[in-house]
Design a protein around this nucleic acid. Structure first.
Lengths: 124, 124
DNA sequence: GCTTGACTTGGAGCGCACTCCAAGTCGGAC
DNA sequence: GTCCGACTTGGAGTGCGCTCCAAGTCAAGC
């Protein structure tokens, strides 16, 4: 079992050390990160796997407070899987709607781009 | 040519009256909106079309300052089409990368969802 | 003439998600 | 033993994009 410093964990997760501390303080992690005798944080593989899930939720636009709620459910342990599922399904729907919306807008922007391309370097 | 009050324009564009004033103040529109003799804003169809473009750019994540730059280019008039095109193409690329990233994360979240679905209501 | 409601303004305030600061601690190299 | 660099903390600060407030104006209805 490897165990990483906060700088290494930051590099591995693509977050900053600041953000890692912030997530921990804010209850987005499943528990306080282990400490070396010096008091420095030591991140386990399990920590990193969870942080990756948090990153996925954040990267798809889930607000911090919802991630916190999801983390709280997981922390509680077995028995609330239906609730976790509901949370993820609700998020999934939001993300899909957003993807569709953005895709639609992008298509419209593409039309604009095509107009400019014709103006700048007209098709023969 | 219809011309709408700020409340009507808000309804039509899906923005709030607050946001419409804010966009105008911040230079996101092509020019100051016309006024009725009372001083109230009157939005033309052309205004609404431009605001729709702004909305598309914003909804795809373009920062306010970039929208402002694009608006400035359009305001300048003919001759800078290549620059406008470059701005839109750059934005397009950002959006596509983002769409790909979000889609990837969503797929991973879907796996998690599938696990929970099996746990909550196991497949027969 | 008074009320009502939709608007006007400059400027302040807000929520989110970080991001940074100051002051301190620790372990290891020299 | 002292220097360095990586870390620690509580709390303050930042940037973005709105969002709201207070005080005022205007036109229409009664």
């Amino acid at each position: 079992m490897t165990s990483l410093s906060i700088a290494e964990a930051a590099e591995r997760t693509g977050l900053t050390a600041h953000t890692l501390r912030y997530y921990e303080r804010d209850g987005l992690l499943l528990h306080s990160v282990d400490r070396a005798p010096s008091g420095h944080r030591r991140y386990t593989d399990e920590d990193l796997r969870w942080i990756q899930m948090v990153t996925r939720l954040r990267a798809t636009g889930m607000p911090i407070r919802d991630v916190r709620r999801y983390a709280a459910l997981v922390r509680e342990g077995d028995g609330n899987e239906a609730e976790r599922l509901a949370l993820l399904l609700a998020h999934r729907e939001v993300v899909e709607r957003q993807l569709a919306e953005v895709t639609g807008h992008l298509r419209a922007i593409d039309h604009k781009i095509a107009l400019y391309e014709n103006k700048v370097a007209p098709a023969p």
